[in-house]
Design a protein around this nucleic acid. Sequence first.
RNA 1: GCCCAGAUGGCGGAACGGUAUACGCGCAACACUUAAAAUGUUGUGACCCAACGGUCUUGUGGGUUCGAAUCCCACUCUGGGCACCA
Length: 812
Amino acid sequence: MKKYEFSKIEKRWQTEWKKTGIYEPSLKSTKTAKRKPFYNLMMFPYPSAEGLHVGNMYAFVGSDIYGRFKRMGGYDVFEPIGLDGFGIHSENYAIKVGTHPLKQSKVSEKRFYKQLEMIGNGFAWNEHLETYDPEYYRWTQWVFIAMWKRGLAYRKKQAVNWCPSCKTVLADEQVVGGACERCSSVVIKKELEQWSFRITRYADRLLKNLDHIDWSERVKIAQRNWIGKSEGAEINFKIANSEHVLKVFTTRPDTLFGATYMVVAPEHEIISKLKSQISNYSEVEKYVKISKEKSEEERVENKEKTGIELKGIKAINPANKKEIPIFAADYVLSGYGTGAIMAVPAHDERDFDFAKKFKLPIVVVISDGKTVEPLTEAYIGDGELINSGPLNGLSVEDAKKKITNYVGGTFTTQFRLRDWIVSRQRYWSPPIPMMYCEACARVGKGEQKEMPGWYAEKEKNLPVLLPMVKEFRPKGKDESPLASVKSFYKVGCPVCGGGARRETDVSDTFLDSAWYFLRYPSVQDRKSAWNNEITKKWLPVHMYIGGAEHSVLHLLYSRFITMVFKDAGLIDFEEPFTRFRAHGLLIKEGAKMSKSKGNVVNPDEYIKRFGADTLRTNLMFLAPFEQGGDFRDAGIVGVARFIERVWRLGQTVIEHKNKKPTCERAIHKAIKKVTEDIESLQYNTAISALMICLNEIENKEVSVAEFQMFLQLLAPFAPHMTEELWFGLGNKKSIHISEWPVYDPKKIVEENFVLVVQINGKVRATIEVPRGISENDAKKIAMSQDGIKKMINGIEIKKIIFVPNRLINLVI
RNA sequence: GCCCAGAUGGCGGAACGGUAUACGCGCAACACUUAAAAUGUUGUGACCCAACGGUCUUGUGGGUUCGAAUCCCACUCUGGGCACCA
């Protein structure tokens, strides 16, 4: 009997597959109607660490199994691979190991691709892409310009998140709990001029489409929360003895009669506008300065509210015409709504805290009839209007409409989502392809009225190459290292011919990955970002698998970019991923695998010891794919035994070549279960079904045809071993392009079943009886059982519940 | 604080409202072996019993039902997301 030499077998088939190109789809030819295209995508990795750990492998293998299943299901499957190697994470890694990112990227590339090949995935290697390849980022820059041309990219001075350790600006989405998502340093606020994308313009659509796309529910919920839509009203409050008004946004206009003071954000323009009327201006100024310097974390951490009254000015409550004080306080955010609120302490927790501290009046205007004054906490529930003049007795809903119209307010919608800040003051990213000419700016020339002096690089001049800079480390001067490379930033103005300056900031890594799925099928196309014909055939992506940690970053940005291109008429779909599933996280001893924790499991050792097929199958057998779980090697021997047993059975089948079917029921049952389970990504139960099947067929002289079907079912999990046996059985074409078996329902039906006899819902006996037995016959057989007879013993049977082909329950 | 997911043997985990604990690990006994490993066979939720058999058991407490791990209500714990968003 031939020994199972997995390392030889695996290496041989990996080479053979590459040679025969069975994983290369026909990307171009539109007339190959025979096999329908299926774009099976897995989030590409960023090669920041020493290599892929077993957690990464878990995700890749899970995606590959689905792709292989679809390929055998008759689809022309496109499963590309690449590296998200541009960006801060790769740059930081290069700094850590003391080399240049350009050099490091070549090393990482080799290592990653080798590892990805060893695991045996069916990648279309011809279409690989790397985000740091000028042939790729040339089009990333083109995407930036496309945004600019449509008025969706703008540069503005604003308060931004700054990571003092990474020495760069971060997008809102990259700040986690007031800290940098990358290095966990506390993020501070800085006033800087930055490029942003107007993602807020698409907020409504990004939200609405979530209702009809087939995505993991938890990711949709995360996006909904992030976009954060609230419906409310904008209401103007007049400032007494002044022409000025203070506009607020509120979701509770019904509580207007309870608004006993107002609060503006420290950054609010009213403070400087009414400077001369504010009697304590110097104190106010001090407070504003302090709160601006506070980090996001400090503002939040300090639950104790701070603030200062703007003395000398008062606002008029438009509902009851009473004069109320105005405060500046940093619990009101400048970036949300109008940056000013009407404070209703009786019905808002934050206003309540503030009112208590500053001894401000609390007027209850909503009551559920049980209200006891004075309140000990804000009442935010539903009820009936009181103390509200003409609104008294109305419901909250009715009052909202009535009062808003009465005071001349407008109903509006607010989103939590902010624009996406894309400038980064780092090195290892695509330069932003823009130029600025001061002379043009002075006379108001430029490509866009709002931003005189700015020009985009001409398309034919792309890419704007990232120059080789030895001192690439961030200097922390609010600018990229490119700002000290004169040969890079000194350019001629494309319009007046004078001296212009190139933008020296680079773009966010998430821009690289926001459109890569469009590039993959068109990688060979050097003339455009994507080829229309190919894109029409292959996109949108049919199945996308990746980590849930990208819910509000990559996945939201990709949807945004896709919508923009749809509106520009450049593509004909507006959602990039038809189906998205988040894989679970593979953890180690309860903690996420990470280099810093030192709990990373290297897959290479396991491949060496057990082979890729065993590792793949073990990873998928551990836990449900969408749930993830704890990686232990305790169970891997069980899977290794299983694979070995299949191999040995295979040798016997090859020897005997039995033709007579002996295991039809077991095989067809397995076909049904495995097919259904793979389709719903329940790989663990699919494998268990294969184990059950093997237990049954192992000692039954299974026929060649039956065993081949078994191999096909196992092929997505253990592609090398099954291929070896497949050819051993005399097949001439790869098992991976063979046709997935179909089960015959007639062959699954059993003649008998085990009838469960219950008394009062408790199992008292089990009897094997023929399928389709009638209620009456079942009753007779049940009653004839000794144990049952004894228990009934003359007691009246009140009711009989009979579930055909399952059970009979006697109620006494 | 709000939203989401989850809690099942010694462990990872299975179970359209219908035999809870499939499959695998581990453990035990046996076979093979001079011996061990490997492999194979059998057993393996807890408690009571000499045995036949019985009782209990899916985080906790209630409810609906002939019947609940599964549906409903309340609570505890764990993981994840959001968080001064008016």
